[in-house]
Design a protein around this nucleic acid. Structure first.
Length: 477
RNA sequence: GGCGCCGUACCCAAGUGGUAAGGGGGAGGUCUGCAAAACCUUCAUGCAUCGGUUCAAUUCCGAUCGGCGCCUCCA
């Protein structure tokens, strides 16, 4: 079965065919680095990671490019458009690039904790200003631009296919419905390619250009950098669904106007994480980050499992209860895989699996080929692990094969007794020994009292024929 | 005003024109000194509501109610 992806361009499931056989160029919208990324921000990176992992498991050589937006951001509407980088810098009394470096580092720390592989190329916008200027020069040479009020604009009327991705009809667009109109624009959908004048004061970073000292328009970086690293046409562009009407629409216009070629073949857009009453978005309330989860005693991979439990094109409803469910499920997967590792000498390689295991692995792949249906893929993983007809070595081999795509780190998981505070460990070990004595003496009342005492330390006991083992309970005491 | 999404059991969540995956959780059981773990059984004649199309709809169409997103550089 071929891989099918839902292409926003066309709004249908399409068979994936790369431009160059065996190779895939993928551009994923990266972070804006003026604050910590919250859990909602992290969803697309997990989605992109799963896509990349799956493509690689199918044998493709994937070049994954991700931008880091470290220039030019408005703050939200409450501030009437103060530059976000500038605002953060002022708040923290630091330079803009210093802020960007700080949050970039924080971002990659978080993605790493979510087991998101680092993209092949990570490109900061500020390091690619010459490429952006060059792109604007090409647009200017072809007559797609005009200048007004000190800024250079893209003229959407010159690009007939404008809005194809978002299915926007320029004549129907209601001008100024929510935003104050820029009087310099000929059409309100026109957008700035290069600023020398802005209603936003205090732009910290400016560059010389043929149009004067200033800074690039906000859509330029993705066009310029993707083409630099992936060529003027490439396979997949992925990002959040909110980018369809403006950001990606404008990227397409300026890219294809410049090159005269089709820019991107497949557009993949993920839906948002919704929070119900928790509200963590821009304006108010608590911002939930990966660090928040760690502080509350969760493994970041619990969140990854939670995300995989819903399809990337569906809104995912985050609740603590749902996250607890994901944590319990992931713990169950780990237990089963650990048990298999105890039973099996070694994982059987994918090409040596018996019929039952192979059928499970095939079903897993079929689910993933159907527009990356991770919920069904997870169900197939569970089916495999519960299938008594599959020998342990084969179950382990197939499970690890699946996890290479899911990225739940099942292969490397170890029981975390070693990570326990040594003082606590010594105390628990002593209590366990005392309880063993009591049990030996058939003093079950004392044994149960000791069990209760141990439980009070946040530790769970497990008796087995070969002795008693213990682990920390799920939640921190 | 425009564009778009969703409403499936206690929770999260797949899915299909032919009779509801998976996980969490609950209940019962086996096992266990007691637990835990594991294993077994079980928990929606039902998929927001009302109409329509159809031999057949949760799945298609329409309306209604409810929730959400984007239209500003939020992922």
């Amino acid at each position: 079965m071929p891989l099918k992806l839902f292409n926003t361009l066309g709004r249908e499931l399409q068979e994936f065919r790369p431009l160059v056989p065996g190779k895939v160029g993928l551009y994923g919208c990266g972070p804006t680095v003026y604050k910590y990324a919250h859990l909602g921000n992290m969803r697309p990176y997990v989605v992109h990671d799963v896509l990349v992992r799956f493509l690689r498991s199918l044998g493709y050589e994937v070049t994954h490019v991700m931008n880091v937006t470290d220039v030019g951001h408005l703050s939200d509407d409450a501030d009437e458009g103060e530059d976000k980088m500038v605002k953060s810098a002022e708040e923290l009394h630091k330079g803009v690039l210093e802020i960007a470096a700080f949050y970039t580092e924080a971002f990659f720390r978080d993605t790493q904790r979510l087991n998101v592989a680092r993209p092949t190329v990570v490109c900061p916008a500020t390091a690619h200003i010459p490429e952006m200027i060059e792109l604007v020069r090409r647009l200017e040479a072809k007559g797609y631009t005009y200048s007004a009020g000190g800024n250079l604009y893209f003229d959407v009327s010159k690009f007939p296919r404008y809005g194809e991705l978002a299915r926007i009809d320029l004549d129907e667009l209601k001008a100024g419905a929510r935003v104050e109109l820029d009087p310099n624009k000929k059409h309100h959908a026109d957008f700035v390619l290069w600023f020398t004048k802005s209603k936003f004061e205090g732009q910290a970073l400016t560059w010389d250009s043929p149009w004067g000292r200033g800074y690039p328009g906000w859509h330029l970086e993705c066009s310029a950098m993707s083409m630099k690293y992936l060529g003027e046409s490439f396979d997949i562009h992925a990002g959040g669904i909110e980018h369809i009407p403006i950001h990606h629409t404008n990227e397409i216009a300026q890219s294809e106007a410049a090159t005269g070629k089709k820019w991107v073949n497949y557009w993949i857009h993920n839906e948002w994480l919704t929070l119900g009453k928790l509200k963590m978005s821009k304006s108010s309330g608590e911002t939930l980050t990966v660090q928040t989860l760690v502080d509350r005693g969760y493994d970041p991979l619990d969140y990854r499992y939670f995300l995989l439990g819903s399809h990337y094109r569906s809104q995912a409803a985050f609740t603590w209860e749902a996250l607890d469910g994901a944590r319990a499920a992931l713990a169950g997967l780990r237990e089963r895989v650990l048990a298999l590792r105890d039973k099996a000498a070694a994982p059987v390689p994918a090409d040596a699996l018996g019929a039952a295991a192979k059928a499970r692995l095939d079903a897993f792949r079929a689910a993933m080929e159907d527009d990356l249906s991770t919920p069904r893929a997870l169900a197939e993983l569970w089916g495999l692990l519960k299938d008594g007809a599959v020998p342990p070595g084969e179950a382990l081999g197939a499970a690890l094969e699946m996890d290479a795509v899911l990225g739940l780190a099942l292969a490397s998981f170890e029981r975390k007794a070693a990570a326990v505070d040594p003082a606590l460990a010594a105390k628990v070990d002593a209590l366990v020994a005392a309880r063993a004595e009591a049990k030996k003496a058939k003093d079950f009342a004392r044994a149960d009292a000791l069990r209760a005492e141990i439980a009070g330390l946040g530790v769970e006991l497990r008796d087995s024929p070969s002795g008693t083992t213990w682990t920390l309970s799920g939640r921190a005491p």
